[in-house]
Every structure is written in structure tokens, then in C-alpha cells.
Amino acid sequence: MSTSPNSQLLKGSLSVMILRLLEGRERMYGYEITQKVKELTAGEMTITEGALYPALHKLEAEGLLTTETQVVDGRARKYYSLTKIGQTEAAGRIAELTAFLDNLNLVLNLKPSL
């Protein structure tokens, strides 16, 4: 991820972001994922390749992602998609992170008098 101040905050949620992006699509490749995140956040959030690929490989090793390689423009392109387990796990992890963010919001919005 980028070296911006929010990079540490992003670290723990990168895998959930990947799962969420793949949840809505049939398949995506690495570069496409980085561009999608940039586009969705209007350039506020950037995922570096050094963070993206290890995360993708780890999710693949966990059996949550499956891959297929296709030759595009004269080079091999590796596409990632969710496995059945990945689909179930994605829903669970997204719900977990959403609940965490809701709770975090409650704490951050705490009024001084309380």
C-alpha cells in the first residue's frame, strides 16, 4: 500500500477489500484491482504491488481465491476469482469489518461529556 498515513490502517483490511471487489465481479487481475481501488476512492487510496500480490497469494493459499491464466496482448495474465469457500468467507469478513468500523465510529464520535 502507499506510504501515506492511512497505509497502516489499510494493512489489516486489504484482504477484505480484495474479497469485496471480487465478490461483485467474475474475475480480476492484479493491475485491475489497484486501478479499481484508486477509482473508487478518487485516488485517495492506492495499493502498492508489494502489498497486493502477497495478499492475493495468501488468499489463494487459503483456498479463498482460484486463478486462471490467459494470454492477453502477448503476455500471460493471471486472473483471480472467488472460490465457493471464498464467497462465504467474503460475506463473513465484510460483515466483521463493517461491524468493527461501526464500533470504531461510535468510539471516535464519543462526546467529551460522556
Partner: peptide, 14 residues
């Protein structure tokens, strides 16, 4: 190979 192919695609696209 898997790393090389994946990074080559990314490098080439960039």
C-alpha cells in the same frame, strides 16, 4: 515463473 509472469503483465500494463 508465476511471479515473473504476473509482474511482467503488471509492468507491461503500467
Amino acid at each position: 515463473d508465476p511471479v515473473l509472469n504476473e509482474l511482467l503483465d503488471h509492468y507491461a500494463t503500467l
